[in-house]
Design a protein around this nucleic acid. Structure first.
Lengths: 145, 145
DNA sequence: GCATTTGTATCAACAAATGTTACAAAGTAA
DNA sequence: TTACTTTGTAACATTTGTTGATACAAATGC
């Protein structure tokens, strides 16, 4: 399939909104920067609303703004708002339960999934949207530690 | 799509092979435990061979065995052998380069990708195939730390 | 009322994973 | 050599998820 770019686009969306301090930003404007259709943006904005990162308003003067400050939004907040899947999937078909390996491998894999998810979370929680904006504003080579 | 279960199946494959100390294991036998087609297994075995984790042999007495000990194979070795993609993808279409955010967001995202990849790698390298086998043999609730 | 924008449904196009069949290549054993 | 077995690989259908696009209802402000 076309692989999942929702986190990338969501970060892009939030960066643009954050840089328009308090002003309502329209989905068409964001779509022009992301270079995609406005519906794609609005779909992601719905996820970001559910996670309480942004608030939207309909109507002629509508749009979307942050519902908390860029300092209060971590990359993990964004990741959780849009990322549904795990880093890897379990078996497509249930393993053979008559085989000792097949019988027990799934619980091992489940634990591994959790470990990896937690590891990513612990890393992403260290970065805020505000830091991303700073990197963007500086323009050049960005080095995360 | 059907999301990627290659790491899960690869770990399953290696566990089975490792538990057959030195004996050649046939792809049909593995496929029976994984509950899939033998060609799916052989495709993954090719990746594991390229990573020098296993060695296969054709012919009537053929099959596959480990090419190093289970203690020497880390989960990261397995992950790298089969995982092609990143945790998230970049923009489907190139962002608008006339927008300051669009112009610089990609390098930020690239760096983020690398950070997450490295984080996963650092975690997976801590576990060996031998430990997985021990968990499998113990059967019950496995707790990684 | 009218224009604008979000929210959502629906659909087509595309890409990746999986499962399947088929068969060549390589090796064993008689 | 011949027959048999197994890996390696190509080719294809199926399924599923993502993206992009059109359409339109609901909400909002003028």
């Amino acid at each position: 399939m076309a692989s999942n770019s929702q986190f990338a686009v969501a970060l892009h969306i939030l960066t643009i909104i954050a840089k328009n301090n308090g002003e309502m930003v329209k989905s068409e404007y964001i779509a022009d920067s992301v270079n995609t259709n406005a519906v794609v943006i609005r779909r992601l904005l719905c996820n970001l609303q559910e996670a309480n990162l942004v608030a939207s308003q309909k109507g002629a003067t509508g749009g979307t703004r942050l519902s908390k400050s860029a300092e209060e939004i971590s990359l993990n907040d964004i990741y959780e708002a849009v990322a549904h899947g795990d880093v890897f999937s379990l078996h497509p078909s249930k393993p053979n339960q008559d085989c000792p390996v097949g019988k027990n491998i799934e619980s091992v894999l489940c634990n591994l999934q959790k470990i990896i998810d937690r590891t990513i979370e612990e890393k992403l929680v260290k970065y805020s949207l505000a830091e991303i904006i700073k990197f963007i504003d500086e323009g050049g080579e960005i080095k995360f530690t």
